[in-house]
Computed example of a mutant assay.
Amino acid sequence: MPKISEAAMRAFLTFLDLETYLQAALDWCEKEGAASLEEVVEESTDFAQSLKLKNLERKRFEKRAQEALADSRKSTAPAESLADSRKSAAPAESRMRGVSATWVLDVFPAMVKSSTGKDSPSFIEIAPFLAHGDAGIGKGKVCPRDGMPDSSIVDALFSEGNSGRSTIFLSWVWSYKVLDVCSALARWLKTQGTNASALVFIWWCFFTNNQFRIQSGGTVTTQDLCETFGDQLKKVGRMLIMMNKYRDPEYVKRIWCIFEVHMAAA
């Protein structure tokens, strides 16, 4: 009986950020006699229960299993075609990257204070120090979207494991203070279960968009941003709305926020 190769299963699980379950997945296939990833997807409920996936992991698996299946086929293709497909897929993968919630909570506030000299500046104040400019996190790093120097923050963090395929889209306002944002994010994560922050990668315009390109004004148009926000929101599939206060929040005064709500409801 044919078996699912370890390489195919690894590619499948890596796409879903579930690679730590590789051996358990292979054991399940052996036990159940699954000979293809298609069978794994068909038996997704039993597969998820057997691996004892956490709530967020199970939801991610159920939602993206078909995408992971298609991606794993590319990943196990012959070397030449694989290289070509990865090259062509790099910009799309980059645009779907989200920043690690763990990194935002544990590392980012200290970086902000060190670079700005303030405990809780707004993201508007932070941007020239960390999102673009000579000391930007992505300064000097090649952007996979256009092959030019200076990348987004998520692309700069990717090799360190501090960004990954987005699991949720954040709708927010740049004038928010960093400690308020971190506090709100931490409170939301508590509702998602134990160790949720390690599984959450946030599509967050501050971190995901290449702020170097936006600041240069040469290659990013309003239409580009509309397509970016709308298309990526649809692909991520889940949106988290963050407000700075209940009464008269800044959120409802921002046209981009209203646009995102419209796209989420469409």
Rank of each mutant, 00 (worst) to 15 (best):
G133R: 11
F108T: 03
S152R: 02
H132Y: 15
L130D: 03
H132K: 06
K113N: 11
R73T: 05
A89V: 04
E57G: 09
S36D: 14
L26C: 10
A131C: 10
E32C: 10
G133S: 11
T116Y: 07
K113R: 15
P128K: 06
A68R: 01
F61K: 01
Q49K: 14
D71Y: 15
L130G: 01
G147M: 07
G98N: 02
N55S: 12
L26Y: 06
L53H: 08
F61D: 00
R95W: 02
I126L: 07
F123H: 05
F123N: 04
T116M: 04
A48Q: 05
V107G: 02
P91E: 08
Q49E: 14
P78H: 03
A83Q: 14
E43T: 07
C29Q: 02
F129K: 14
R58H: 06
I124W: 06
G33V: 07
S122F: 05
D84V: 13
R86M: 15
V112E: 08
T45W: 11
A79H: 12
Q49S: 11
L56A: 07
S88Q: 14
P91V: 02
A35G: 13
E32L: 11
S85I: 12
V40T: 05
K54T: 01
A92G: 08
L69S: 09
S100W: 07
Q49H: 14
E42K: 13
G136N: 06
F61T: 02
S94M: 04
L37Y: 02
S115C: 06
F108R: 01
S122V: 00
V112L: 03
L105D: 05
S44T: 06
P149H: 08
K54R: 14
R86L: 15
V112S: 08
S72A: 15
F129R: 07
V142K: 09
A135H: 09
D150F: 07
E39T: 11
D150Y: 09
